[in-house]
């Protein structure tokens, strides 16, 4: 169930679901729960098969938020869907590198690049 305040802007571009985060800081526990619920609903309820997560507005991201992304990645793989991350700022990308999560996610520099060949 996707409950709580909407934390993602959803747009369909050429058959691909683009989800943009609306928060600059993804640190607050309640926000992270809401983000997780809305992300999971894209796969579990809507059955979307091609998803791009756009991080262009995100300035901070906690480990709890990373946990939601990992769970999302598992759901996407189980549903044989595709997930790409894009427009991640260098500081945030460093967090992915430190935790080696850049190895499990398909990360592109721009949204255009992420949409290409989806």
């Amino acid at each position: 169930m996707s409950t709580g305040q909407r934390r993602l802007d959803i747009e369909e571009i050429g058959g691909v679901t683009v989800a943009r985060f609306v928060d600059k800081k993804i640190l607050d526990e309640t926000n992270i729960q809401n983000i997780g619920n809305q992300l999971f609903a894209l796969v579990d309820e809507d059955g979307r098969k091609k998803i791009v997560l756009d991080f262009s507005i995100v300035e901070y991201l906690s480990s709890a938020a990373l946990g939601k992304l990992i769970t999302m990645d598992k759901k996407v793989k189980a549903a044989k869907a595709k997930l790409r991350l894009c427009a991640i700022r260098p500081e945030i990308y460093e967090v992915f590198e430190i935790t080696r999560l850049n190895k499990i996610f398909d990360i592109k520099s721009t949204q255009e690049e992420a949409l290409d060949g989806m």
Partner: peptide
């Protein structure tokens, strides 16, 4: 260690690593 291959897809355990880093 969350960066070990077998732990990479575990959704928790990265906070202390980020603090250290």
């Amino acid at each position: 260690d969350p960066t070990e291959e077998e732990n990479l897809d575990r959704p928790c355990g990265r906070g202390i690593m980020l603090m250290r880093s």
